[in-house]
Amino acid sequence: MSHSNRLHGGLNLGQAHAETHRQAETMVFGFWIFLMSDLVLFAVILATYADASVHGLADGPGPAELFELRNPFIETLLLLASSVTFGMAALHLKYQDDRRGLVLWMLATGALGLVFVAMEGWDFYSLVVHDDAPPQRSGFLSVFFLLVGMHGLHVIAATVWMLVLLIQIGRFGLMPDVKLRILRLSIFWHMLDVVWVAIFTFVYLSGVAR
């Protein structure tokens, strides 16, 4: 089995020698562990949400009154699409030494991420302004804003990271370090999609299900 197949998303490090591959494997393994820790972060907030969305309404509006499905649905599709576009970028990285394709797919991914964040921002805005449901209103809303906002912050961070990587591609080309960072970003991005699956199911779908 070749080394590149062992690296999750798969990576072609070009002519780099075995030591680089070993380092790459360590790097990616460490990043996976970080992501596991990050998953626990969301799990713990989600558990808190499970309590607060039932017991923490404080006579304010609950999930059924506040949430609608249209925007979360579009947001879900946006993230899903961005996962696929990042997959395409990863394929370009692995099989073609084609910087333009890679950059274009990454730009598409970043754009989808930004639209997602913008929509989420709009959701937050309308909750606070139109529905009079700011996080300070009840325990439920506090946890809702923390949970969804934490995911949003992750997406923003990932987008900034992508920007930095685009600059590095421009400056250093596709050297092994940069390739590895793109690989790790792609794992991060896919993982944010996994988290979002939990959020749209347990926050939005479960909130409005009758």
């Binding site: 896919h190 999609d193 479960s206």
Partner: peptide, 21 residues
Amino acid sequence: TLGVVSVLAVLQIVAHFRYFL
């Protein structure tokens, strides 16, 4: 509904790990 969407979520998470990760 809650039960079914929960199962679907688990399946989808598995699919993400399988196909994307």
